[in-house]
């Protein structure tokens, strides 16, 4: 294949990465934005979404599309419930202290990973794609499902944007983000908002994972990469900004796709990390720091 088509293929793959990454990172960014905490277990919610998708899809026989759709609905719900449980039993009790939360969510990371290993096992398992057609370009064929991933991600991002900016729920979330005490004074149930935001953040990651699992198999250690890439995206894209998250996810996703195809995935991730360093050198307080109280 010539360079041009090769680059085109790499960009398409990069778009898929970017789409899924944008969803995952948005979940992390939302939680950090509203609750001012960093959820290190975010990647494990992603992994849990993928593993559950495999399980739900296996429950039904018949058309793979049906199994996939069930997974797409139920898997994020279950993950949301798990996240809610974690939030109520652990994070609420340490009063969302930033450092304690990091340590506690690292603990959650290990527990979720271990449970996945014990009940799901060490194997990587695929989920069948709901549709099975190939787009034929002059140079290569490309899985039509990947286009679906991009499309659904865009829809979900738009939906999140709509909820955050055009609904009462979004207004309440933004008010809480802006000032917790004042929000409380205006009778906003901050406690419930936190629980909801944490669950929604986890559900976004789980949804992203269900979308990706027909392309990339479910495995109990698959959570680390999306976590670190989400950190990169959130640092580069700025906080709470959906547009920033999407733009940063595009940059990271595309460069990851292109560098992975031409060089190696490892090099792509090293470079992304160094990009973060570069961003922090230009903005010493970091993009997190700028919004900290």
């Amino acid at each position: 294949m010539d360079f041009g088509p090769y680059l085109f293929l790499a960009s398409l793959e990069g778009l898929v990465t970017a789409a899924v990454l944008a969803l995952t990172a948005l979940g992390l960014s939302l939680v950090f934005g509203v609750m001012r905490i960093v959820n290190v277990a975010h990647g494990e919610f992603f992994m849990l979404g993928a593993v559950l998708a495999w399980w739900f899809a296996g429950l039904v026989s018949g058309s793979p599309a049906f199994g996939f759709l069930i997974a797409l609905v139920l898997s994020p719900l279950v993950v949301g419930a798990v996240a809610l449980l974690c939030e109520r039993t652990v994070l609420k009790r340490i009063d969302y202290n930033p450092e304690a939360t990091i340590v506690a969510t690292i603990g959650l990371l290990y527990i979720i990973q271990q449970l996945a290993l014990t009940f799901y096992g060490p194997d990587a398992r695929p989920v069948q794609a709901p549709i099975n057609f190939r787009i034929v370009f002059p140079w290569f064929g490309w899985s039509g499902y990947k286009l679906v991933v991009i499309g659904v991600s865009i829809l979900l991002l738009l939906a999140t944007w709509f909820v955050l900016t055009r609904t009462r729920l979004g207004l309440i979330m933004r008010a809480t983000q802006y000032d917790r005490e004042t929000a409380q004074a205006f009778a906003i149930p901050v406690d419930k908002v936190y629980a909801a935001v944490f669950a929604i953040g986890a559900m976004l990651a789980a949804t992203a994972a269900v979308l990706i699992v027909p392309i990339q198999q479910a495995h109990y250690l698959m959570g680390l990469d999306p976590l670190l890439l989400s950190f990169i995206v959130v640092i580069i894209g700025g906080l709470g900004s959906i547009l920033g998250t999407v733009v940063a996810a595009l940059i990271i996703g595309l460069s990851d796709g292109i560098i992975s195809v031409f060089f190696s995935p490892t090099l792509a991730k090293i470079l992304a990390t160094l990009l973060v360093a570069f961003v922090l050198v230009i903005r010493p307080q970091g993009l997190f720091g700028a919004t900290q109280r």
Partner: peptide, 17 residues
């Protein structure tokens, strides 16, 4: 050059690199 939560994340990223 960072502090607080960013410090934790950035050290993690460098270690990962």
């Amino acid at each position: 050059r960072t502090s607080g939560v960013s410090f934790m994340i950035v050290t993690m990223m460098f270690a990962q690199a």
